[in-house]
Design a protein around this nucleic acid. Structure first.
Lengths: 217, 217
DNA sequence: CCACAAATCAAACGATTGTTTGAAACATAC
DNA sequence: GTATGTTTCAAACAATCGTTTGATTTGTGG
């Protein structure tokens, strides 16, 4: 466990390299040789420290996701303290996105790269994560769902679930960085990759969607 | 070109099998041997008929996408004939989703499987499609963007682009079938996989997002 | 029937994959 | 210094990948 080369040990260097490459090429298209080369470690180090490529992938996710989800729950808890009689939809969405902005600005915790990875994993959960993700995510989803049910009492429980699903999709997709906008011939939207800029336009959209009338004409 | 085994020739059988497998496992994780086995054709048939795995992938996409996009444009054109003075946001969203519902109900054109593939390709465009997708999609996006700009005159052009991007993301994500809802411990939402049911809840959400006030408090 | 092109087939190609091996290098404790 | 356990390393492992080959079968037109 001595810090030889860099300031980081071998396992961490592997995690860092894998994080970037997984988000760039996906799980299958990223080889262990690409990872170990970028991390400047021996090829066998992956299987020595993690056991397999799949476990490495789970390690990349869980290293960041568990603390991040905890932060999301804490953010909502704090907001509820200040407003014990229930939060507005606006406050709920803002609370959910605040940790994302903080994380995006903090390269030490993965920054925008991990957010992109998270979005992609969520949009296309790999087999090796199908059992892990629900366990990691269910607490956060349930907390925010409960807050939304309180904020939208005129909607049925099922309808809130529908809209929460849509809202999550919108948010993940917006952060995934795949740029539907780039397909538009005209107008390169300025700041399309800046998380803070994304959130500025995203919040009104999501809030309006969540608070839409129950059955429009 | 004689129809030997089934009612379909070899190239079509390969396309059908690849379509299902690509949606199920992704591009990299789907081997040619899986495809040819499912299609009940010889392994070499893929390279004989298509040239390479990448070209096959492009073939799977373009076979369905080009006619579908044409249908989306035609749907908007028809709606504009009935309302030459401009469409409501509601009508625009409905027009865009109508071809998707028709396609989802038509297994002969790929049905829900192809819609899922389309959503995933859009969320995570493979390298071999990065040049193809913009060309196939730009016409549709530009047509609907123009309609939205007319329907939302109080918004700037950039803001419309932002919201169109969010709306596309919401729609694709909703159809991708990855079920954020399944992560929720409570309440299995009924009909979560039925396209018609999805659209019923999706339209109000997207319309509200698109028509949100410019700068909420 | 024959000639010619199209399509199918089993088999093998070289390359790359994740993983394992066993020795060498390192660290720590006595 | 010696012993012990941990980590690194070059090399090889079997398996699978996409692709190619060359012979064989099939279909078509004269």
């Amino acid at each position: 466990m001595s810090f030889t080369d860099n300031g980081k040990d071998t396992a961490t260097r592997i995690l860092d390299a894998a994080e970037v490459l997984f988000v760039e090429h996906g799980f299958e298209a990223t080889s262990l040789r690409m990872i170990t080369q970028r991390a400047a470690v021996n090829l066998a180090a992956v299987n020595y420290h993690f056991g397999s490529k799949e476990v490495l992938f789970q390690g990349v996710i869980s290293r960041r996701l568990a603390p991040y989800n905890q932060e999301c729950i804490e953010e909502l808890r704090q907001a509820l303290i200040d407003a014990p009689h229930g939060l507005s939809v606006d406050s709920i969405v803002a609370a959910y996105l605040r940790p994302a902005i903080r994380l995006a600005k903090d390269p030490a915790r993965g920054g925008i790269i991990f957010i992109r990875l998270m979005s992609r994993v969520f949009a296309e959960p790999h087999d090796s994560l199908r059992d892990m993700l629900p366990r990691l995510y269910s607490d956060v989803l349930e907390a925010y769902r409960a807050a939304l049910v309180k904020a939208l009492p005129h909607l049925g429980s099922h309808e809130v679930s529908w809209r929460l699903q849509f809202a999550m999709g919108t948010i993940f997709y917006a952060f995934a960085g795949n740029d539907v906008a780039r397909l538009l011939s005209q107008n390169n939207v300025p700041g399309a990759r800046d998380p803070q800029e994304i959130v500025k336009h995203l919040v009104p959209f999501v809030v309006a969607g969540l608070t839409a009338p129950n059955r429009p004409a």
